[in-house]
């Protein structure tokens, strides 16, 4: 690739690309929730909206040369350190300096982990309600349900 184009991508596209896609996904979900007629389609839109927000949170926690948020004392950086302190026992472990730039930010991960599991339980509840609606009205299309609910409306 041409170095100028590569440089342009590095400086202008890469730092913001994640956020653009999260906005696009969120808008796809919002559009589906507003305009789709079928209740299952609305729920798929809701799930897409939710994953877009989770994507935003996780993107914020990324660090440039950060690994996964699990502390490793067996990596190449820590090996000598652990060897040197091995006689002193675990008492010295807490004095090891942990470089916080080497680990991704764990806080957004924690918040989003529970959000995913709660998301599936709300999705299950919503699916149960749409099954109940199908039992009462015989359809999952929004306009037909509204037609039947209207006084004097039939079919």
């Amino acid at each position: 690739m041409d170095p100028i184009i590569a440089n342009f991508i590095e400086e202008n596209i890469v730092p913001k690309f994640n956020y653009w896609i999260y906005v696009i996904l969120m808008m796809i979900g919002l559009y589906a929730m507003i305009t789709k007629n079928n209740l299952i389609k609305k729920l798929i839109g809701m799930a897409i909206f939710q994953t877009a927000i989770i994507l935003f949170y996780v993107s914020i926690g990324v660090k440039e040369d950060g690994g996964i948020p699990i502390i490793s004392h067996h990596g190449p950086d820590h090996h000598q350190e652990t060897e040197a302190h091995s006689e002193a026992g675990s008492e010295n472990l807490k004095h090891n300096i942990i470089d916080k730039d080497k680990y991704a930010n764990p806080l957004p991960h924690v918040l989003m982990l529970t959000a995913i599991v709660v998301g599936v339980s709300t999705l299950g509840l919503a699916l149960a309600i749409s099954q109940r609606i199908h039992k009462s009205f015989g359809t999952l299309e929004e306009d037909e349900i509204l037609n039947k609910l209207r006084p004097g409306g039939h079919d």
Partner: peptide, 16 residues
């Protein structure tokens, strides 16, 4: 609004 966000992967961003 994304213009004001910290760039992706910046270890000095406010959140990290």
């Amino acid at each position: 609004a994304t213009q004001d966000f910290p760039s992706w992967g910046n270890p000095r961003s406010a959140a990290s």
